[in-house]
């Protein structure tokens, strides 16, 4: 049995002369929390868009949940969840309308939507706010709701793009509790973050530098490999290596 949920092989994406993703190869194992780190402009978003089936690669191959990103993107979309800091929920719809809208897109039945939706309201203690517009919720609540909705259809894999950007330290921790619960339910988590304490919460991390994978391994392995005490120092070492 193949226990790899993401397999990327010599993947490249060019924009004109510029290789945003430059010949990267890596794998993500089922059930893992995989941290996808890198500086702004390193190519994380481009790579993620390819893996989500939203952008075609220029060369190389990648499979997600066993489907090829170039030829089977529709099957991929049905098997993954996605949330980002920038776009996740519709502000002008109520909490409940957002839940049922997304669940509908994932082709859940009315009965399934009702059951899963009520479970979300209960878990997040949002029952009272069911008919409130999402725009009126504090950011931390929105992010937790967006995450719950991103996995409402029990996908095999969820992509989280800077889910905790700008969120307060207590809510960030509550968010990571949710990530761990999702992982315990066998949902693989693929997450990007600029908070480096969160890198430590991942089973494995990769660090992208200028379109390439600069380093990959468990947080502990990377610290040992670079002989430093923190992930920040690993990233700094990679950035300095690039400058030289």
């Amino acid at each position: 049995m193949n226990d790899k949920i993401v397999e990327v092989n010599e993947l490249t994406r060019n924009f004109g002369e510029f290789a945003a993703v430059d010949n990267i190869t890596f794998e993500v194992t089922k059930g893992e929390i995989f941290g996808f780190l890198g500086a702004n402009g390193a190519g994380k978003t481009t790579a993620m868009r390819i893996l989500c089936g939203l952008l075609a690669p220029s060369s190389g191959t990648a499979t997600v949940c066993g489907y090829d990103v170039a030829s089977q993107s529709e099957q991929i979309k049905l098997n993954i969840g996605y949330m980002s800091q920038k776009f996740s929920l519709f502000n002008d719809l109520s909490v409940w309308d957002n839940i049922s809208f997304y669940a509908g897109i994932y082709r859940m039945s009315t009965a399934q939507i009702k059951q899963a939706g009520h479970q979300i309201l209960q878990e997040l203690e949002l029952g009272k706010y069911k008919h409130r517009l999402v725009s009126s919720l504090p950011l931390g609540w929105k992010q937790k709701l967006a995450f719950a909705i991103a996995i409402i259809h029990k996908p095999q894999l969820v992509f989280l793009d800077e889910p905790t950007g700008g969120v307060d330290p207590i809510t960030r921790r509550a968010f990571w509790d949710m990530i761990y619960r999702a992982a315990a339910e066998n949902i693989t988590v693929f997450v990007t973050t600029h908070y480096l304490d969160e890198a430590e919460y991942c089973d494995r991390i990769s660090i992208m530098v200028k379109g390439k994978i600069g380093a990959i391994g468990t947080p502990q392995e990377l610290k040992e490999q670079f002989r430093v005490q923190s992930i920040y120092d690993v990233i700094l070492a990679l950035a300095r290596g690039e400058e030289q």
Partner: peptide
């Protein structure tokens, strides 16, 4: 106002 939100650690 939040000039570094979403900015990577080294750039910050």
């Amino acid at each position: 106002d939040e000039p570094t939100t979403g900015v990577d650690a080294v750039s910050r």
